[in-house]
């Protein structure tokens, strides 16, 4: 708590976000509080935008017209003049970004900006994105049975690559986090029954500190990205969606093959 407070107080920050413009009007910015111990107020252009922003909270998305914005973060209730972080952000059309208050591997607070992949997700899939923003060493993320999901995920402040991303079948997963290369038996964190919703980008931030027990996962969802199935194969016998002529050709081939041994057996008697 005090460490975070001191560091934040000492810190002046410039945020600068920019992406090529797209057809979208304005950008979307989500703010994630990943530093344990300090509830803050977030000011945009001098106005209180996110009051009572507690560790583990996810605020937004803020729909912002393209332009430059002044940001300030102050301890809750202390007013903008007590800001411990200030900066500016340039928002462009089509931007979808996450601003994360994080800890480095060594435990130093800071601010990270991630640009989010909001491309269409194939029907039936979920997009899992993992971001290591915790005071913790490089890790592997695995399923409970040891199947690796992402290997060598390092605190983003250590330098890229720092984000793991994969589109996987929607469903429920039992997830383990283990020191890199140590195997699932050495897991330091377990989360059973993690839902990965269809058509949603579920962004998982590792936050806090392993050393002081404040380590935890914070989730940001970007829903509504799901694609549509390509068709509805209700026409038995081509129930798999295989074109009819392919099916009939294979049926004829099977018929031919099946008839040969039958004839042979009969003649051998």
């Amino acid at each position: 708590m005090r460490k975070a407070m001191l560091f934040l107080t000492a810190m002046m920050l410039m945020l600068f976000i920019a992406l090529p413009a797209s057809a979208a009007d304005g950008g979307k910015v989500t703010v994630i509080h990943g530093i344990p111990g300090l509830t803050v107020d977030v000011f945009v252009n001098g106005e209180l935008a996110i009051p009572g922003f507690a560790p583990g909270d996810v605020a937004g998305p803020l729909d912002l017209p393209a332009g430059n914005y002044d940001l300030a973060i102050a301890p809750e209730g202390a007013g903008i003049d007590a800001a411990v972080l200030t900066g500016s952000a340039a928002v462009t059309d089509g931007l979808n970004a996450s601003i994360v208050a994080y800890l480095s591997e060594a435990g130093d607070p800071g601010i990270a900006i991630f640009v989010n992949d909001t491309s269409t997700i194939a029907a039936g899939q979920s997009r899992l994105i993992v971001r290591h923003t915790a005071a913790a060493p490089t890790v592997d993320i695995l399923l409970a049975d040891g199947t690796p999901l992402f290997e060598g995920v390092t605190n983003f402040a250590n330098g890229a690559p720092f984000e793991g991303k994969a589109d996987v079948p929607a469903g429920t997963y039992d997830v383990r986090i283990a020191p890199a290369g140590a195997g699932v038996e050495a897991a330091v964190f377990s989360a059973d029954g993690v839902q990965l919703p269809e058509g949603t980008a579920r962004i998982v931030y590792a936050t806090g500190s392993l050393a002081d027990g404040s380590f935890g996962l914070v989730i940001q969802d970007i829903a509504g990205l799901g694609g549509t199935p390509g068709g509805v194969p209700t026409g038995d016998p081509s129930g798999s969606g295989v074109p009819m002529w392919v099916f009939l050709a294979s049926a004829l081939a099977l018929l031919t093959l099946a008839s040969v041994p039958a004839v042979a057996v009969r003649r051998s008697r």
């Binding site: 945009v44 001098g46 106005e47 935008a49 996810v58 332009g67 430059n68 340039a90 993690v194």
Partner: peptide, 26 residues
């Protein structure tokens, strides 16, 4: 993006409106 205009016309209270705030904790 230095060519972008300053958005002094957008303030947190009026133009941004209430910002959805949820706990993201797993």
């Amino acid at each position: 993006a230095s060519s972008l205009p300053a958005r002094d016309d957008v303030s947190g209270g009026a133009a941004i409106g209430a910002v959805p705030l949820v706990s993201g904790r797993l």
